[in-house]
Design a protein around this nucleic acid. Structure first.
Lengths: 141, 141
DNA sequence: TATTGTTATACTCTATAACTATA
DNA sequence: TATAGTTATAGAGTATAACAATA
């Protein structure tokens, strides 16, 4: 692999990450559409691996809480998610994935991995290298 | 860095890439909003580094050509982009960035790099490593 | 008073289909 | 006939502001 001039390394990686993001968006949206989900519905379903209130979903989706109402409405109409009262705080509605919702989510994750435009192009050693780099890059602390 | 069981490596990397994608989306949308651009307008402006017809933008944005009309309308109203006739094929409209559009695009790229949630967390050696990996992962061939 | 979630509103993005003008 | 772009339409995502119920 060729070296990149030091000053422009960040710029080169930024362009790559932009391209990566675009390809992933296309892939994720395609998988969502194959399961009759809009992009936002698929992201909401992804984050509902564990039950949580509406507000938490808004945080994870980086959108206004008022939007979550409509997104969850459509998931609920399809029977993938349920709104349940929270006995500890009756202002809150807990979101719980139904059995069918869990099946759709599993299938989504399977399809995301199978046709992944990035993972498919790297051998196991490279995947491990990427995993270690991303573990550092994504660390919370 | 800890090893990941071979069978689940792809799955682990897939989850990381999903998280990476979400953080980048938040960052890119924030930069776009700081320049009074919607996410799609910012992506269109990014791809107009060189003049190109409407259809090409639709391809790059992975959306229907009919959507590009509205997105470009709003960029043109703001004076960031111009539609020009193409003498070689009079059905086509060539999109050209104005001087102001180029300035906004430059500022966008600068802000994307400066506050980048991934690049900021990696040292130069790690950035070079990520660059080489992504060069392979994104290769067209 | 503050917080959770909803409703109302207006704007943007989205795909589909029908259209115009060129080729 | 086929292609580039537009218009029309309807559904979905978006932020803002006002609201009800609860804390």
């Amino acid at each position: 692999m060729e070296d990149v001039e030091e000053g422009s390394l960040g710029s080169a990686v930024s362009r790559q990450l932009f391209a990566l993001w675009g390809r992933m968006r296309a892939h994720l949206d395609e998988v969502a559409a194959s399961l009759d989900l809009t992009p936002m519905q698929s992201r909401a379903l992804h984050h509902l691996g564990a039950p949580c209130p509406m507000g938490d979903v808004a945080d994870r989706l980086h959108c206004d809480p008022s939007n979550v109402t409509g997104i969850v409405d459509r998931l609920e109409e399809r029977g993938l998610v349920e709104r349940r009262p929270d006995p500890e705080d009756r202002r809150r509605r807990m979101l719980v994935t139904t059995r069918e919702g869990a099946e759709v989510r599993e299938q989504m994750h399977r399809r995301i991995i199978e046709g992944h435009p990035i993972i498919q192009r790297l051998d196991l050693a490279e995947q491990q290298q990427l995993h270690d780099l991303l573990a550092r890059a994504l660390a919370e602390d």
